[in-house]
Design a binder for these strands. Structure first.
Length: 105
DNA sequence: GGCGTGACCCCAT
DNA sequence: TATGGGGCCACGC
């Protein structure tokens, strides 16, 4: 489980699972947590994610406050975030820095 | 073993 | 504030 044999994309899922409800994270933060600048690969991992019903992919948003894409649709993503307690307006997070969750202090 | 793609990010104007 | 252009990494074929 805590093995380091997991692929890069699986590590993204693990970090994502660490995000509590009512909070969100950014692709940039995940990449940083992995000590890499592969935000591209992170998004790619979500796009190919097979654990859509196991990983809260809807809690991942872009660094500029936009929600980004979602397997079920960006519209559904915003709905879920709002239900989680995140303030979303016009498809964008109102106070990203307030809901952002960082894996590092 | 190499190329293209992608749920992106940052900077300058 | 919005828009355009360039660049980064991992995965699949």
């Amino acid at each position: 489980m805590d093995s380091k044999n997991n692929s890069f994309n699986e590590r993204c899922y693990e970090l994502l699972k660490l995000v509590p409800k009512g909070k969100v994270t950014t692709y940039r933060e995940i990449a940083k947590a992995l000590h890499t600048n592969a935000w591209r690969a992170v998004g790619n991992a979500m796009a190919k994610n097979k654990s859509l019903f196991v990983i809260p992919c809807h809690r991942v948003v872009r660094s500029n406050g936009s929600l980004g894409q979602y397997a079920l649709g960006a519209d559904k993503k915003s709905e879920l975030l709002i239900k989680e307690g995140v303030i979303v307006t016009n498809g964008r997070v109102k106070d990203l820095g307030k809901f952002i969750h960082r894996f590092s202090t």
